[in-house]
């Protein structure tokens, strides 16, 4: 009898021990697996924003690094001093140059997003209507430019839009214009550059929603007497809204801060905030001002970024 009980207890003890060990190993393994990428992102993605905000409250100084300290420890009087300068933000508000740059960036990004949608939608619609093998091929053709260098694709447009470039030569050859047009270094070139480089970002989410589209609903609308145009605007378009929304945000958000496109294709007076930040940093070496510009840009972009995230979460549910 006692022997049996003994075995029972021993067995029980063993299971408890293995369970405990297993639990321990899972906990530690789990913790380290979760924390490695999280800590990396915290240090190299999140904390940098705090540093940007901190330095935006400093003043430029001739030093290495070129800004003043916020915390000054006065050893003689044992006084810790905190100097916060909101002057950069005041300056951002008062000097119309910055306000104009923000407004013009948002305008350029919004207009280009609209044209990206206008060009991307029919393409996505066309691809989604093809049979599976053609679809893969066409999708690859859409994605392929994304894999080639962004810088070199923008550069390709420089050769294309130059005074004696292909577009001007072509327009002259067919007799549409007598004199070459100034295409490069204009706002027009910036619009083309943004639409061109961000087109895949628009087409892919559109394609994903269009592919899942229930064709029978459109059929039903038509059977009930809707004209194709009416069926498109009343049935197809509303069902594509999540894709349109995601595509537009994916184009708009990075376009607001774009630097390379206005720098290479834009005029010297094409105002975009990414370029202003770049010049503050690299030409004026005013790190605090560049940080203030970045902080305000981030605040402007937080709302669309939040929208993108909530849209995604709703889609999941």
């Amino acid at each position: 009898m006692s022997n049996v009980t003994g075995t029972f207890w021993l067995g029980h003890y063993n299971t408890i021990r293995t369970k405990f060990n297993l639990l321990k190993s899972i906990r530690w393994g789990r913790l380290s697996v979760i924390s490695i990428p999280s800590v990396w992102l915290a240090i190299f993605f999140f904390i940098p924003f705090l540093v940007v905000f901190k330095i935006s409250l400093a003043e430029p100084a001739i030093a290495v690094p070129p800004y003043t300290d916020l915390f000054v420890w006065d050893a003689d009087n044992a006084i810790a001093e905190i100097k916060l300068k909101f002057g950069n933000y005041l300056y951002l508000w008062e000097d119309s140059f910055y306000l104009d740059a923000y407004l013009s960036s948002v305008k350029i990004a919004a207009v280009s997003t609209f044209f990206t949608l206008l060009i991307g939608f029919p393409m996505a619609y066309y691809i989604a209507g093809k049979k599976s093998s053609t679809r893969t091929l066409l999708l690859t053709l859409v994605i392929l430019p994304f894999w080639t260098s962004f810088l070199l694709r923008v550069y390709a447009w420089m050769g294309f839009l130059k005074k004696n470039g292909i577009v001007n030569e072509f327009l002259q050859a067919i007799g549409l214009i007598d004199q070459p047009l100034q295409l490069l270094q204009t706002d027009f070139a910036v619009y083309i550059g943004i639409v061109y480089t961000y087109l895949p970002f628009m087409i892919l989410p559109l394609y994903t929603t269009l592919e899942k589209l229930d064709g029978s609903l459109i059929e039903a609308a038509k059977d009930l007497g809707a004209s194709p145009v009416k069926a498109f605007f009343l049935v197809t378009l509303p069902m594509c809204m999540p894709g349109i929304f995601a595509g537009c945000l994916l184009v708009f958000i990075p376009a607001v801060g774009e630097f390379v496109i206005p720098a290479l294709l834009g005029a010297s007076d094409t105002l975009m905030i990414g370029r202003v930040l770049w010049d503050e940093f690299f030409q004026n070496r005013d790190w605090p001002m560049a940080s203030a510009v970045a902080t305000v840009m981030l605040i402007i972009l937080v709302v669309p970024i939040m929208f993108l995230r909530t849209g995604k979460n709703e889609e999941k549910q």
Binding site: P48, V52, I253, V256, G257, L277, L298, L301
Partner: peptide, 11 residues
């Protein structure tokens, strides 16, 4: 989607 100028400056 973060504009590159912000990521670059902050890092």
């Amino acid at each position: 989607i973060m504009p590159e100028v912000i990521t670059g400056l902050s890092l």
